[in-house]
């Protein structure tokens, strides 16, 4: 039985939701794989080495980078799933804020000071030591570690994910989805 780990970094869990779109094929899937660390079973740490790691989302804080490196260390095949992992997706919009030489500051000030519906009487940007340090910009997964495969889509459809998983479980990367891939 193959072991699969999944994680959502700077993503929206949409790709995990899309995994449920494989519908009743999920019964077949649980016969073939055992889930290690994953939001599906709420395991926070790796129990043992995994065959396949599915990564949703890019890296926007240091905890994301740490988790992604952990996945690279513990997974034989690492797959970036969805536009956020592939090219940054929506979070990457903060890298290129118009007319700003300091996009991160502008992003935080808009979120915590300048937005019309902000209630922030202390005028602070959250800075608790328990919060992971935010990175200067959003990095895609291939910028941080070596990714074996990337599956674009926002999210990749259930069929795309099913085809990806069956191709990798059968050890036939040439069967990875092609024509059904979409970028949105």
């Amino acid at each position: 039985m193959k072991r699969v780990a999944t994680v959502s970094l700077a993503g929206c869990f949409g790709c995990h939701m899309s995994l449920l779109d494989i519908d009743e094929r999920i019964l077949e899937l649980v016969k073939l794989v055992e889930f290690d660390r994953s939001p599906v079973n709420d395991l926070k740490k790796f129990k043992m080495r995994c065959d396949i790691g599915l990564v949703e989302g890019g890296c926007c804080n240091e905890e994301n980078v740490h988790t992604l490196r952990e996945f690279r260390k513990n997974c034989d095949v690492l797959v970036g799933v969805g536009q956020c992992a592939v090219m940054g997706g929506l979070p990457v919009m903060r890298n290129a804020i118009m007319h700003s030489s300091d996009p991160l500051r502008e992003c935080l000030e808009t979120a915590y000071f300048n937005s019309p519906y902000v209630y922030n009487p202390t005028n602070d940007i959250p800075n608790d030591p328990a919060l992971p340090l935010i990175l200067d910009k959003v990095y895609t997964c291939p910028e941080v570690v070596k990714m074996d495969y990337l599956i674009p889509g926002c999210p990749p459809s259930g069929d795309v994910l099913w085809q990806t998983l069956t191709a990798l479980l059968n050890g036939k990367p040439s069967d990875l989805p092609g024509e059904i891939i979409r970028f949105d």
């Binding site: 997706g89 919009m93 910028e143 990337l150 970028f183 949105d184």
Partner: peptide, 30 residues
């Protein structure tokens, strides 16, 4: 950014990428 672009689905650049089979878009840096 295809996911948040109004032209997605009628974009010729995107449609050509599908036609030409660009599936692993990490050959060059962004």
């Amino acid at each position: 950014l295809c996911p948040c672009c109004e032209a997605s689905g009628r974009c010729e650049l995107q449609a050509l990428a599908y036609r030409l089979g660009i599936l692993q878009p990490d050959k060059y840096p962004y």
